[in-house]
Amino acid sequence: MRLNPQAVLLTLAVAGAAWAAGTPSAELACAGCHEQAVDGFAANVHGRLAPFEIPDGQTGCSSCHGDVIKHQETGDPASVYRFGRDREADTQVCLRCHGRGAKAAYTATVHAEETACSTCHTIHTQKQASSACSTCHADVQAQTLAPSHHPLREGTMTCASCHDVHSARPGALAVDGRPNDLCVSCHAEKEGPYIFQHEPVEEDCTICHQPHGSVADNLLVANEPFLCLQCHEFHFHAGLEARPEAPTFTVGGRQYPNVMGAHGYQRSFATKCTQCHTQIHGSDLPSQGISSRGRSLTR
C-alpha cells in the first residue's frame, strides 16, 4: 500500500490535537455553571498543579472549594467552601499549601489584617499585574512620580521588587539581612566593604536616599549641599568672595575666564559637595591630603 503523506498529515494533526486536548475532568462539570472561573483556569498555575504538590493530593476546584461532587449533586452552595465571606478563613485555605515555607509568616503581617490573598492574586485566570498597593499607599505611589525615581512608572520595577507583603519584617522589605542588603543587590558597587567608609552608608542607605522618589537627583532626600550640611560643616572656602573681581585668573601661566566673578569661590564650594567627594559610598583608595588620613572620599 502506498502511503499518502497528506492523509497521514491530516490524520495525525487531528489525532494530535485530540490527544493534547486531554480528557474531561471534574472542572468540566463545574464549567457548566461557573464557565468564567473555569475557562481561564488552565492558564493559572492552580489549574496545572499535580496531586503530589498538594497536602491532600486533591487538585482542581476541590482543592480549595472542597467537595464539589456533593455540590454538583445537590446544587447547595453551602456544600462547598465559598471565598469572600471571611478573609481570615480564606487566607487559611491558601496557606494550606503556601504556608509551607516563608509565607507561613503572612498572618503575622499588617497586610493580613486588611487584605485577602485575592486582593492581589488572580486565582482562576492568568497572572496579572496588580496595583492594589496604591489603595492604601497612595502617598508612596505619588512619590514615584517625582523627577528622580526608580523605574516604577516605566513598569520595569514594581513594589514587589523591594517589598514582600508576605513578610512580617519592618517595612515588609524583601530581604533577609538588613535593609541595605536590598539596595546592594542591584547596586553592588556601593557595598565594598571599603577601607575608607562614609558612616551613614554603613548605617542605613535611607539616611540620604528616598527610594520611592525625590525632587533631587539620585533619589536624595534633599539636594546637595543641604543634604550634607545636616551632618557636616561647610568647606572652609565656601564663603570666600573672590577679590579683586578680575575678568580672568591664571593657572600655570594660562589664563581662564572668571565666569562666576566675585561668587566663583562660593559657587565652587557651596553648590555640590560630590564634585570633589565623589566616592561618597566608600573607597579603597586614599584621598590626597595627608591631614584627612586618606578619608576624604575624593578618589
Binding site: H237, L240, A242, R243, P244, A246, F249, T250, V251, Y256, P257, N258, V259, M260, H263, G264, Y265, Q266, R267, S268, F269, T271, K272, Q275
Partner: peptide, 12 residues
C-alpha cells in the same frame, strides 16, 4: 560652577 580665584592665588 567650578571657576573661581582669589587674587590669582586660591584657584578652583
Amino acid at each position: 560652577n567650578l571657576a573661581g580665584a582669589i587674587a590669582d592665588v586660591k584657584i578652583v
